[in-house]
């Protein structure tokens, strides 16, 4: 087991398959990113540690970690990194790669939200906010959904009054004009990306 440790195999895998993954080897372990992260204390592995784990060949631990899903894209780390690593992008790249491989933690809330957001968006070419929020309310079951909806009712009614929320969207969502074209664009983009990363679709 120790034979593969600190070898370059996982680092190479990350370089080839993860968005901006070729930057991981340039980390000099100063820890400024970890110290700058507003979520720092809440993740299992701050960026610096994650990068070291990649170099140490801890494939399962890295890809199965919820750490990169915790990134809020505040870009504090990117601004401060003395080695100019695009850390935020690497975090999203890692999350994306883990997701594709099916190794990402199943019930991680930001992952769930991201997935919901993407499905919602890609279907019609625009975000249906009503469906998205209701989907979120009810993701943990019907009872919890009702509870969530009741808790948010004042805001909902306020938005209704201000015409910021149209209940008809629930029955007849309106799509963007070229929804079909968007589907074609996204399919092509995925095809290109898969080819570049050498993944089968």
């Amino acid at each position: 087991m120790s034979g593969e440790r600190y070898r370059n195999s996982f680092l190479r895998e990350v370089e080839h398959n993860v968005e901006e993954g070729h930057w991981v080897k340039m980390c000099m372990q100063c820890g400024v990113c970890s110290g700058s992260c507003p979520f720092g204390p809440h993740w299992a592995h701050p960026p610096q540690e994650l990068f070291m784990m990649i170099r140490a060949g801890k494939r399962e631990e890295v890809l199965g970690s919820d750490a990169m899903w915790m990134c809020t894209s505040c870009y504090n780390c990117v601004v401060r990194c003395p080695r100019k690593l695009p850390i935020t992008h690497i975090m999203h790249g890692l999350a994306n790669y883990a997701h594709r491989l099916g190794l990402a933690p199943k019930n991680q809330p930001t992952r769930q939200f991201a997935k919901m957001f993407w499905d919602n968006l890609s279907k019609t070419g625009r975000v249906n906010e009503l469906k998205l929020s209701l989907g979120l309310y009810f993701k943990d079951g019907f009872k919890q959904g009702i509870r969530n909806a009741l808790a948010m009712k004042d805001i909902g009614l306020g938005m209704l009054k201000a015409k910021r929320l149209n209940p008809l969207e629930l029955v007849k969502p309106h799509a963007c004009k070229g929804a079909k074209d968007i589907h074609a664009i996204l399919a092509k983009a995925k095809e290109i990306e898969d080819r570049r990363k050498g993944l089968s679709a």
Partner: peptide
Amino acid sequence: FYRSAQRKGVTFTK
């Protein structure tokens, strides 16, 4: 020089 080594794939471990 250090950066060049990292670019060449030398692993640095604290």
